[in-house]
Design a protein around this nucleic acid. Structure first.
Lengths: 215, 215
DNA sequence: TGCTTTCGTTAGAAGTTATAACTAACGGAC
DNA sequence: GTCCGTTAGTTATAACTTCTAACGAAAGCA
């Protein structure tokens, strides 16, 4: 989307077509899910015949990788802007939930069942780390009472995943708990496991959030 | 697997072939995931040509539905036998984790991203309820201290999903928290989101479990 | 022994991803 | 302005997939 005014007109056109392909791919994914994404269907929607699409994406996996990258970037941008606006951990949680409900398949694309042979490229893990850093920043502002758990001491020696983030083991622990608990509720809700059970998933989400913040 | 000695020899043979198909399907799913399951590949492995398999399963979806049913039954049986052996909620959690790690794709098949057009038949929801009942039984034996949360009062009026299980709102709440938190850690672990982060997912799992039990 | 049901086959339709080979058009250099 | 290389899009094709249709053969049953 950003800066299509780079270099040659050929590259501008190429970027535009790639963006259009991704747009159709997102629409298709939103309804049928990522596993049913069809390059053929996209090319037909765009009015060009099958193999033309392979000038823009070498394979179906490469397109999906691009979509996954965009999804990671989207959640990172959303949380970052919320954090920049002064959101605390609780508000970040609701921001995350809103982002997930906005396009469930987009959430499931990055946090759901992985595609069999797929392996994430390096730049995705770096974007993923940025999201984690935002959560750790928000976790650090909260008071961390209570004694250190065995997992805290384990984290003190296994904190390579946090990079050089200056977070105490307790904060790292809270960040991981935040991630897994929010994902636990969200993923089950998005997968439809709560439908027909009668209760409101939003209340379960906030209940889990409150329990986490109250420690 | 059970009671192949029913009625006519034709039905015995039919049940045997269906079991063999499922066995090959599980092997295939364990390596490639459910979305890449190929009826053609199964029939070739069994030494018979493609469409022969349609005598036993009307469609790919019907085979997957059968696999999902078996997975639900498997987790229900595993937890029930553990519960019958006197396991408390903590031991049930580790039993669930062991069952999930035993065949990650089997766990993801029922708790992961759902197949696009798939809708679970009624008998599956009843088996799923049995699993929930076991968790609620184990949750009821624990002391539930602390004041009632807003979600507890909500559950008091939205407890149809628990059937006629005699559990207090607090116990219902704990059952749901148990489910979502264990799933949160397990699904992220099985999806490979912890690989390369350095820490031990088992310790995070027990840390979450301890936090839940300590309330 | 014959009848009927069912099993497994081949053939084929309608999809899919992906490659190969060709044409046409576009953009930059002279 | 013309020429020429790059690139876009085409059709044809291969190798898959699920699934249907029609046929032959085998097995069970009376």
């Amino acid at each position: 989307m950003a800066q299509t005014d780079t270099k040659t007109p050929r590259e501008r056109y190429r970027a535009q077509v790639r963006a259009e392909i991704k747009q159709h791919a997102w629409e298709q994914i939103a309804t049928t899910g990522a596993s049913a994404l069809s390059l053929n269907a996209i090319s037909k929607q765009m009015g060009m015949s099958g193999p033309a699409l392979y000038r823009y994406y070498a394979s179906r996996d490469e397109l999906i990788t691009d979509l996954i990258r965009d999804a990671y970037r989207s959640v990172a941008d959303t949380l970052r802007s919320a954090s920049a606006a002064g959101a605390d951990l609780a508000e970040l949680a609701h921001t995350l939930r809103r982002w997930a409900l906005e396009d469930p398949q987009r959430y499931l694309l990055i946090y759901g069942t992985p595609v069999p042979g797929y392996h994430a490229p390096d730049d995705i893990t770096s974007i993923s780390f940025e999201t984690m850093a935002i959560l750790l920043d928000a976790s650090a502002t909260l008071p961390s009472d209570g004694p250190a758990t065995p997992f805290d001491t384990h984290l003190a020696e296994h904190r390579d995943w946090a990079g050089d983030h200056p977070a105490s083991p307790a904060v790292l622990h809270r960040g991981l708990s935040f991630w897994t608990r929010m994902h636990g509720v969200l993923s089950l809700e998005l997968a439809g496991h709560f439908t027909g059970m009668g209760f409101d998933p939003a209340l379960l989400f906030t209940a889990e959030l409150d329990a986490l913040l109250a420690h």
